[in-house]
Design a binder for these strands. Structure first.
Lengths: 226, 226
DNA sequence: GATAGTTTCATACAACTGTTTGAATTGCAA
DNA sequence: TTGCAATTCAAACAGTTGTATGAAACTATC
């Protein structure tokens, strides 16, 4: 086994460089220079560049998923096997958002790395993301238990849209700040989580009376406001 | 001036290859082989690889934005300077979704290219997307006119979430299909547009009574369902 | 039909990439 | 200390990349 020192140094250097400069223009030579190790060390310890990236991502990704499931189970136990829909969605988007957002100046390397991974979609990362479906199915199942009357399709769309808002906020936080001239506060993650959850829940509630058949002709929403 | 033949052939070949294989592993040599032109032709006609990509994206992007604005203006004229919020959002997400989704088997090269551009974020494309903010401001302004009582911040979040759902649906349509075992119909774009619009509107409606102050402590949504 | 300007072409360039190699070094056990 | 495995190292490898060059082919004008 030995000291693990080199391995760890490579992981740390790679995570930092990828976080700062993106995957596209960070070479193995950049990484080993930053880590003060030999070029061949990467292939010796990880096999290939892609496996290094995969290990970085999978580590963070597992941590997030574990936290998600932990919160989901806690919510379901609290409710005696059935959690409130908003609790489920909080368990889904909370860990991800907390892991990536927060005060800009004190964002960890890990957070910035995960933002990159969310923006740039490099093959080894995409492969891992594709295996995430089984994980999401557990949330779909919990949502179905929470809303047994709702059409199954509506559940999937609700889950999909919740993830959409969370990930898009992570990816485009900078743009939202610019667009709103800094008026949208992206530092208080808990507020953002509540925002995402409440819109997702509002969407699911809207679906209650509408659409039990998805192949129906598009139905324009009546003038809901004003 | 001349025939433009080579230029056009390069554009068509590049768009097709990028659509099929992504930006990462399509080289200039692949493109010129597909277009049956000489390698040097790309640099002669476009200056560089990045400028070729930029031209491809800017063309489609301008078309979409023009259509968006056209629909926005039509909606505002119809309402005498003030459009319904759902009409505004339809103008925002409609053209994008129509341009990318639809029956898989008959998706145009342009559509598949734009999906790629949405998933992979290569530098020349990112540069263009960053200039899109002024365009979005026009929609924010229209939304403010439609909902003069609503807090400005809520408007920005509503706009942001609407785009989130649209883009995420484009990006992750395959995953949603898998997750739902094909039960979510992604072929009927008009239905999807209504879905996105109605959730976004429901989110804005929910904000009516809540939160006039964004720096307030997070307020858990009350058990809204069941 | 000569001329000037545009476009095409084959080819070379220079740089950079991830990976491999085989020898040197280290660390640990017997 | 000896021996053996794990690790480090410098160097080279093999391939690919976007771009530049200068001559050739073409086109249209006079």
């Amino acid at each position: 086994m030995a000291s693990d020192q080199t391995r760890t140094a490579i992981l740390a250097a790679a995570e930092r460089l990828y976080a700062d400069r993106g995957f596209a223009d960070v070479t193995l030579r950049d990484i080993v220079a930053e880590a003060n190790v030999n070029l061949a060390a990467v292939n010796y310890h990880f096999g290939s560049k892609d496996e290094l990236i995969a290990e970085l991502f999978v580590t963070r990704s597992i941590a997030t998923n574990r936290e998600r499931l932990h919160k989901l189970r806690a919510a379901e136990e609290k409710g005696g096997g059935r959690a409130d829909i908003d609790e489920i969605l909080r368990a889904l988007v909370g860990p991800t958002l907390r892991g990536c957002l927060g005060p800009e100046n004190q964002r960890s390397t890990a957070a910035r790395f995960m933002i990159r991974a969310s923006i740039e979609s490099v093959p080894p990362i995409r492969r891992i993301k594709n295996r995430e479906i089984d994980h999401l199915r557990k949330f779909a199942a919990a949502m179905r238990r929470a809303l047994p009357d709702r059409d199954e399709v509506e559940i999937f769309w609700g889950l999909h849209f919740a993830l959409a808002m969370a990930h898009h906020t992570i990816r485009e936080s900078e743009r939202l700040t610019k667009l709103s001239d800094g008026k949208c506060d992206l530092d208080d993650v808990e507020v953002i989580i509540e925002r995402v959850v409440s819109v997702a829940v509002a969407g699911l509630r809207g679906a209650e009376t509408q659409r039990s058949n998805t192949t129906t002709a598009p139905r324009r929403t009546a003038p809901l406001l004003r």
